[in-house]
């Protein structure tokens, strides 16, 4: 069986600057992989390239989901195919009501799958139930998307969307950044609830502490646009001890 996500010798540039310089990675169904790396190693670029953001140009290699190349797919098509990106800096959408936004996202998938749109009342109930797990109250759901949310609220709102959209592959980009200990626990618990043998995750982080909560099957160290080392969860602890210094040499 083909891996859920397969990245083959991926090269990508932003403008004229090459950032990713030959990434190879395979994630099987049900696995959680973590990518760690120093600032500027290409972690966020990798998440945007996977999601198909404009301006992030693939200059070589391929990205396959269930054996099918995604390079020609627009970002909304990739999303409907089951890829979800939890943003490091979620974007404010002034005036766009939270409920209508969530409904639009869920309906976009359903329409593509040839299903009916969600029943409005049922949907509100569903959102409330999932929001409760993430300590998101009704007031937050009524506000415009991410507008006036604290850093922690924004991250919880990302995980709420992930819970509603039920992606087969979730990419979590520095979901721990800007979170205090309590918020980190709420977010991690929310993510762990979504662990499922049918779903995979790619957790991008700078710090090991997130991986105490969301325990990965594999850890990869990204530096200088390449994966330098791959190991089990203990690799994260090693990095915590000795830092990223010397990683480049290990390649």
């Amino acid at each position: 069986m083909a891996p859920l996500l397969e990245i083959r010798d991926l090269h990508a540039s932003v403008g004229d600057t090459p950032i990713l310089k030959g990434i190879n990675l395979a994630i099987n169904v049900g696995e959680i992989h973590a990518i760690m790396g120093p600032n500027g190693s290409g972690k966020s670029t990798m998440s945007y390239v996977l999601a198909g953001r404009d301006g992030y140009e693939v200059t070589g290699g391929d990205i396959l989901m269930n054996g099918v190349s995604m390079l020609e797919m627009e970002s909304d098509e990739r999303a409907r195919a089951g890829m979800f990106l939890a943003f490091q800096y979620p974007v404010e959408l002034p005036g766009v009501g939270g409920m209508s936004f969530l409904r639009a996202a869920v309906n976009a998938r359903r329409i593509e799958a040839g299903e009916d749109e969600v029943d409005q009342l049922e949907f509100v109930k569903l959102v409330r139930a999932k929001a409760k797990n993430l300590s998101i109250n009704d007031d937050m759901l009524k506000r415009a998307v991410n507008v006036g949310f604290s850093g922690g609220e924004k991250k919880r709102y990302e995980i709420l969307q992930m819970a509603l959209l039920e992606p087969v592959l979730s990419v979590l980009d520095e979901t721990d950044s800007g979170l205090d200990v309590d918020a980190l626990k709420i977010v991690s618990d929310g993510v762990n609830l979504l662990r499922d043998p049918a779903r995979s995750m790619l957790v991008i982080t700078h710090y090991q502490r997130l991986l105490n909560h969301i325990v990965p099957d594999y850890v990869h160290i990204l530096a200088g646009g390449k994966i330098r080392r791959t190991g089990g969860k203990e690799l994260a602890l090693e990095v915590e001890e000795s830092g990223y210094v010397g990683i480049d040499d290990a390649a």
């Binding site: 002034p94 005036g95 936004f101 959209l165």
Partner: peptide, 24 residues
């Protein structure tokens, strides 16, 4: 990009954002 990453087509994303702008 944020809207599209949620699976919403470009045109629907523009419509959502513009309607948000006009909400008042």
């Amino acid at each position: 990009f944020y809207c599209q990453q949620r699976g919403i087509s470009t045109e629907d994303s523009v419509s959502l954002i513009v309607n948000g702008f006009c909400k008042e």
